[in-house]
Design a protein around this nucleic acid. Structure first.
Lengths: 213, 213
DNA sequence: GTCTATAAGGGGATAGAC
DNA sequence: GTCTATCCCCTTATAGAC
């Protein structure tokens, strides 16, 4: 739903895309993700995106009406992926297992999709100008809902007493750290080291000790 | 040591600054910190910095030879402040107290100096192009040293077994989250809420449960 | 020390040929 | 659908008067 297709004169209908359109928008999304995630919105240039996508600058603007449109489309495309791991937290599951599984899902995202993580980090760091409404709408609602679940687990004595919202914040920060601060993590551990196995063990141990009686 | 004074023709000696120079560079640092921390290096403009400092653009460039020079000077000025809280971790103190005190120092920095936190976050997020040598030099050395301290505490049975480097990473990520992701924290908690009292309680509880027998 | 004016180049977006 | 050429604004930095 994110991309708006050819900007002005859609060649076919607006619902049907040719194979070449589909392929080009996919290539463009990947290129834009690479460039925006490392340089931020204003630091990124259409030249960089075009050359990363292997096409000319005007051709990029044939698919998206502006630099802003690419960025917005990217964020919208990713936002659901970003919320899904928390959505999957199941009140009927075993509480500690559910939380550890959520931690593992988030850590996997940092490992497998670090650029997406840095794209969001860039956006939020700068005050979330383009996604503030999503944060205070969809995201807040989801957090409130899942915080209530955690609170009930805690009230029922199934996990130790804990502030549910700050628990969620801590899962976000601990897992996303390995993607967002990758440069620092590798500066400390050495470029060769894969931090994820040790990170997973550390985080499972941390949340287990904190939450189990 | 960071600023290089008037760029080309230092008016007096290079070691002595006039009162007006001292005042202007201080004002400039504050303005630059505000602008760079919210927009990143390339997103920031000299116009924004100049107007935030209440001076004209050429006047800004009278004090620093380039935009890059302002940014570098800022980072250099802040780096020691950034490392000091970890330096203060004392092997001879009571282990859990030392770690909790470090957590509190870091959390206070997020609360009192969020712009500095976001400046570093921006820099590291973009691959730390301008401070990579500090990270793999001074910072790595300090982390190695303090990780060894924590390892000895752990070996001596004074705290529970823990990966010392990931423990340090977790303190960084958990505390800096409240400054760097301020926009998200407030979107979830509401603009009026001060997250820090609850954050401090949550984090103390987290590390106490994780580290004490 | 501070200003106005301006040079020089980068970067987003469009025109129009193919 | 894709390209070359180009427009024009924004931004960094300098020149030179006061």
């Amino acid at each position: 739903m994110a991309q708006d297709g050819p900007a002005k004169k859609q060649p076919k209908t607006r619902t049907t895309q040719t194979r070449i359109q589909r392929k080009n928008t996919a290539v463009l999304f990947d290129a834009a993700l690479a460039v925006f995630s490392t340089h931020g919105f204003r630091g990124a240039t259409l030249d960089q995106i075009a050359s990363a996508a292997g096409m000319s600058k005007p051709n990029v603007l044939y698919y998206f009406r502006s630099k802003e449109a690419i960025h917005t489309a990217l964020l919208e495309k990713l936002i659901e992926t970003w919320l899904d791991p928390l959505r999957a937290l199941d009140e009927n599951g075993e509480p500690l297992d559910e939380i550890l599984a959520y931690v593992r899902r988030k850590l996997s995202i940092s490992r497998d999709h670090p650029r997406e993580s840095r794209l969001f980090a860039n956006e939020i760091l700068q005050g979330a100008p383009r996604i503030r409404s999503v944060l205070s709408g969809e995201l807040k609602q989801l957090v409130d809902e899942k915080a209530a679940v955690i609170q009930r687990w805690s009230d029922a004595g199934k996990i130790r007493d804990v502030d549910p919202v700050h628990l969620i914040f801590s899962i976000w920060s601990l897992t996303q750290h390995y993607a967002d601060f990758d440069a620092q993590v590798h500066a400390v551990l050495g470029e060769e080291t894969d931090p994820y196995p040790a990170a997973q063990h550390y985080l499972e141990s941390l949340f287990t000790r904190m939450l189990s009686h």
